[in-house]
Computed example of a mutant assay.
Amino acid sequence: MIIKGNCQIAGIGIYLPEQIVTSKELMREIKSEANYGISESWLDDVVGISNRRVARRDEKPSHLAIKAAEEALKNSGITASEIDVVIFCGISREWIEPAVAHKVQHELGCTNAICFDVSNACHGFMNSILIANNLMQASDAKYVLVVTGEVSTDITFHYVDKLKVKDASLKKEIGALTLGDAGAAMVLQPREGESGFQLFNFATNAKHTNLCKISVAGTGGYEGQMLMSQISSEIVQIHSNLIQSTYSALDWKPEDIELFVCHQVGEKPHLRMSKMAGVPASIAPISYKDYGNITTATIPFNLYQANPKKGQKALIGGTGSGLTISQSGIIF
């Protein structure tokens, strides 16, 4: 599905917890060599993830989101009271009801904003940008704040405890050890001239839902699986099936792309995504090495780190379990 772009980025903010946990520490904790015959350096050497940030116990998803939003508002030059809509899109939530966006709205002072949550696994931030984009087309919404706060490492440490038992299924559950915590926020406003999102191309293939599915167990904690190799292969294939229609709709060629930002779960999938898009890996910034899979925060984090120059053309590749993807063209 191709949707016209109506918005542009006014400002981005990020927030990272202070604590760093290494991959070797996690592998040592599960006794990977003794229990599974896998080196403690496997996540570093094979997946490409060396570190991740871990939130304090008192740092809730809304806390990370609010910290990131404060920076995004500052960078945009837009005040909290000017925000028309607040969307929280994190996988992590500190409560079921009401929407976490209500807490963000109140704490930031976005008193004139309507607010709600959006949930679509790691793809939630791109879905929220699309909703903001369409609100600007269909209503008088001028400024939309999209925020996320991910405390995914509570899943990580649940599975670390589980994987300490030798008969656990490492293949199904090691993906949980790739997660990291982060907050990210983006202020969006209507397009002006050539700048902004040119279009969005979205696709979903729900037959792959079971490849990555985590639920709350009846006895507490989590249950499910994250079959990372299969997920990555299917995701790249879905992107490959879509990329030519995206380039055609944009009237761009791969050599026009100056920045490629995509969701990241590790080194090999990242390189395959660059190849899929027909762009050199050198123009695709990485976050997985030092921060792991930061789920919905990945794309805004990498856009923030890249600090694009005015006029640059970028391709954004969004991904989420389900499986769901998007490809977006943007001119800064």
Rank of each mutant, 00 (worst) to 15 (best):
S119A: 13
K207C: 11
E150C: 05
D161M: 03
V151I: 14
C110E: 09
T156N: 11
T111W: 01
P190I: 04
A206S: 15
S233M: 07
A203F: 14
C115F: 04
I96S: 07
M228A: 11
A138W: 10
V118S: 02
K162H: 09
N134E: 14
G149F: 04
N120M: 14
W95K: 14
S233L: 13
S139T: 15
Q137C: 08
S195M: 05
E107K: 14
F197P: 06
V100E: 00
V147W: 11
L211N: 08
K213R: 14
E107W: 02
E97H: 02
T209D: 13
A141V: 13
T219R: 11
T156D: 09
T178K: 00
V147S: 15
P190L: 05
I174N: 06
S152Y: 04
K164C: 01
D140H: 10
L108K: 05
T148Q: 03
Q137M: 12
A176F: 11
I214L: 10
V147K: 07
E192Q: 09
V165E: 09
A217S: 15
I214E: 00
M186V: 15
A184P: 02
M226K: 09
G109E: 09
Q105G: 04
N133S: 02
V144W: 08
V104G: 03
S215E: 14
P98L: 04
E192V: 13
C115E: 01
L170Y: 15
V165P: 01
L130R: 11
P190A: 06
S139L: 05
C212P: 00
V216Y: 12
V100Q: 04
I129C: 13
D154T: 14
T111H: 08
S128G: 12
G196I: 07
I131T: 13
N205L: 12
G218S: 10
S233D: 12
D167G: 00
T111Y: 08
L179W: 03
G224E: 08
M186F: 08
K172T: 11
Y222P: 01
T178G: 08
A168Q: 04
V187E: 07
V187Y: 11
K142W: 03
D117P: 05
A141I: 03
V236K: 00
V160I: 14
A168D: 10
K213D: 13
T219C: 03
I96N: 05
T153F: 06
D167V: 07
